[in-house]
Simulated scan of single mutants.
Amino acid sequence: MYDVVLLALDSERRAPGGCGSGDSCCGPAAGDGCEPAGERCETPRVPVLTCADALTRRGARVETVTARSDAEIDAVLARLDGPPRPDGLTWPDPDGKTRLVVATASDAQLRAVLRRMVRRYAPPPSRRPADLAGNRTVPDLPPVGVLPLDPARVGAQRDLAAQLGLPRDPAEVAAAVLDGDARRLDLLRNDGGSVTLDGALLGAADDAGRPMPFRGRIEVDDVVLATGEERLLACAIGNAGGYARLDDVALLTAPDPTDGLVEVAVAVPVVARRALGRKRVRLEVRRARGRAVAVVPRDERVPYLDDGVEGELNRKRSWWIEPGAWAVWTN
């Protein structure tokens, strides 16, 4: 039978080395993804305990862990390590009997765990092993069970679990972890050291909800979507479908986290003259798919959301796809 670690994230984020180190553990907040000083995010206990009970009834040995720092996440991930390799690299165990369930109050929490997993298992370029696929920089990461803590995130503001059709009921999550299949999914890495599971949206709105234009050069492989001279209202970088729309406008047409491609769209306001000299602004959406995307901001700071975590882009950032790098347990 399996050993199952049920990992929840809960941190007083102002402490140095707090959970995620720049990736929000408890959800999006201003600036660095941390909560305001003095606030704390308590993980709801009922779904966690219900899932643990369901696992125990099936004969699994269950341990619940609440991580308040990157080091505590790393200690849990170490249980997924494989046996020592001749090259000395830390590698996941493909036949391990320990399974991981991540209790998530937000996509940002799941991203925080996957970010630490990538840092643990990605070999340095100078020690790239021969058994690593040519289109990857990380090995197959261990599958994770996802336990959503918010049962209502299935409407317009769907979380990643809802987009992927993963079970939300704690007992069904337990069944998927013990009896289900591992569904492999694409992962976006970026040169800032983080990962993206769902997508990123560049741009922001003012207090009245109106988009605030920005400028940036945006390239997908060899395709230039924006030169950096014109004003943009938004740029969506999609792995899954959470950032597919801007109000009533479709940005991403068919994002698929299993196709080995990143889909990118930019929204450009275009002024057209009508009869009697009247002007009309329409939105032009340019799209491309590829293996990688590079964004070079022309303005001093470009606000963005990446898996729900807020930030500001003030220098070049590149994302690239890692096909099938991570996986979830599903029924």
Score class of each variant (00 low, 15 high):
212 M>R: 12
130 A>C: 08
229 E>F: 05
119 R>Q: 14
294 A>V: 12
289 R>M: 06
307 D>Y: 03
284 E>M: 10
163 Q>G: 07
246 L>A: 13
211 P>I: 00
301 R>V: 11
254 A>T: 11
76 V>H: 08
331 N>E: 14
96 G>L: 06
241 G>H: 05
196 T>V: 15
68 R>Y: 03
122 A>Q: 15
231 R>G: 08
247 D>R: 13
120 R>D: 10
143 P>G: 08
102 V>A: 09
31 G>E: 09
82 G>H: 03
315 R>A: 15
164 L>A: 10
291 R>A: 12
314 N>D: 13
142 P>A: 02
15 A>T: 14
266 V>R: 01
280 R>I: 09
314 N>A: 15
61 R>S: 11
293 V>K: 10
179 D>C: 05
312 E>N: 10
209 G>L: 05
218 I>F: 08
234 A>S: 14
111 R>M: 13
135 N>D: 15
226 A>D: 09
325 A>S: 10
298 R>W: 04
94 P>L: 01
217 R>T: 06
12 E>K: 14
157 Q>R: 14
159 D>G: 12
115 R>D: 11
173 V>S: 00
295 V>E: 00
204 A>P: 04
222 D>W: 10
8 A>P: 05
268 V>H: 09
330 T>N: 05
210 R>P: 02
47 P>Y: 00
123 P>M: 11
317 R>Q: 14
3 D>I: 03
325 A>M: 07
278 R>C: 02
235 C>M: 11
281 V>Y: 01
225 L>I: 00
92 P>K: 01
8 A>T: 14
280 R>D: 15
83 P>D: 06
39 E>C: 10
324 G>V: 07
299 D>L: 02
84 P>K: 02
96 G>Q: 03
103 A>L: 01
117 M>F: 08
143 P>F: 13
238 G>Y: 07
72 E>G: 00
10 D>Y: 06
233 L>D: 04
263 E>A: 11
249 V>F: 06
134 G>K: 12
247 D>V: 07
128 R>A: 03
70 D>C: 14
285 V>G: 00
247 D>I: 01
299 D>W: 04
299 D>E: 09
94 P>Q: 01
78 A>G: 08
113 V>N: 07
247 D>H: 12
264 V>P: 08
259 D>Y: 04
275 A>C: 00
314 N>Q: 14
120 R>H: 05
299 D>M: 03
274 R>K: 05
257 P>L: 01
217 R>S: 10
244 A>L: 00
152 A>K: 08
126 S>Y: 07
56 T>C: 05
192 G>R: 10
166 L>R: 03
320 W>Q: 02
27 G>P: 00
90 T>C: 06
89 L>P: 02
25 C>E: 10
249 V>R: 15
232 L>P: 05
88 G>D: 06
66 T>R: 10
242 G>S: 10
168 R>M: 12
143 P>L: 07
208 A>N: 10
15 A>E: 13
8 A>Y: 06
